[in-house]
């Protein structure tokens, strides 16, 4: 049953929620930790916290599935959430924000500073978008069209994140911020790596908070994939050079040059840790 308020709706199923979204112009409200600090809070909210379909955490043979309205704390407490995701979530703000903020809100806010989104980029996760005409699955890289621009129709919601299970075990996560808790990350890095019989089978890196959109370049990472460790060592400087060209920082609170240099240092540290 939908609870109706003066300027908000609280549906209790995804079907009710999508029906409302199709008919009216409503702002999805998950945890509110981004929405409540906005200057203009006019309009009507569509509250997502009572929709069981958006709170589910499950798995099948190949993938993990996280409901968009799961809070950071719920994922930190889940046995299914992988270590790389928990590494990022545990460093978000303080308990009260982690108890409230959700992954759907983190992605839906459209910021390149979003710490959980960084992990969804590096793991090549896909988003399930649900709308009045059905659902579609979009790789998270294609979902971000530009600064605060998302591939999301007015009748659609992010309903689930699908994360492939393969390649999750060997990871690196770094967040460089002014303070440990609070303060949104100034810069963040995540990497995944795998080798088998001396050859690199997987390498993926992503940079948050440096550009308009989180940076993930599969084409560059393919420079290392398939190589032996000695061959990768030989290709290392070309790989770093490629990222030096690919990272175009926006001017923020911390100077653009500092951001770029830090990114490259984090990349070098990652390669060192992986034995390259």
């Amino acid at each position: 049953m939908v609870t109706i308020l003066a300027n908000g709706f609280v549906p209790e199923s995804l079907a009710e929620c999508l029906e409302l979204k199709a008919k009216r112009s409503l702002t999805p409200y998950a945890g509110g930790t981004d929405l409540m600090i906005e200057e203009d809070r006019g309009g009507q909210y569509l509250f997502l916290h009572k929709i069981p379909e958006l709170k589910r955490i499950r798995e099948d043979d190949d993938n993990l599935y996280f409901g968009a309205a799961c809070t950071f704390t719920e994922l930190l407490e889940s046995a299914l959430a992988p270590a790389i995701l928990k590494a990022a979530l545990s460093r978000i703000a303080a308990p009260a924000i982690r108890n409230t903020g959700t992954i759907g809100g983190n992605i839906g806010n459209g910021s390149a500073k979003a710490d959980s989104a960084l992990i969804f980029f590096v793991t090549d996760s896909a988003l399930k978008l649900s709308g009045s005409k059905g659902e579609r699955l979009v790789p998270i890289q294609d979902f971000y069209l530009g600064r605060k621009k998302l591939d999301l129709q007015p009748d659609e919601l992010i309903s689930e994140v699908r994360m492939p299970k393969k390649w999750l075990s060997k990871y690196d996560y770094q967040k460089i911020g002014a303070r440990k808790s609070l303060a949104i990350s100034r810069l963040s890095f995540a990497g995944l790596f795998a080798e088998e019989n001396g050859a690199i089978t997987h390498c993926a890196v992503a940079f948050g908070a440096v550009s308009d959109v989180i940076i993930r370049r599969k084409d560059l990472d393919s420079l290392l994939i398939g190589k032996t460790i000695p061959d990768a060592k030989a290709a290392k400087s070309a790989y770093i050079k490629a990222y030096e060209e690919a990272i175009v920082p926006i001017r923020g609170r911390v100077s653009a040059e500092y951001r770029k240099e830090t990114c490259l240092n984090l990349l070098k540290d990652f390669l060192n840790k992986m034995g390259i």
């Binding site: 308020l5 409200y29 409540m36 924000i97 108890n99």
Partner: peptide, 29 residues
């Protein structure tokens, strides 16, 4: 009113939250 100080903390369904970061619709039920 920015989620930074915790002076407005309350317990919502057993968990600590900042009441300044919480809209009334969120506490329905």
């Amino acid at each position: 009113k920015e989620g930074e100080c915790g002076a407005c903390s309350v317990i919502l369904d057993g968990r600590l939250v900042n009441s300044c970061m919480t809209a009334m619709g969120r506490v329905a039920g």
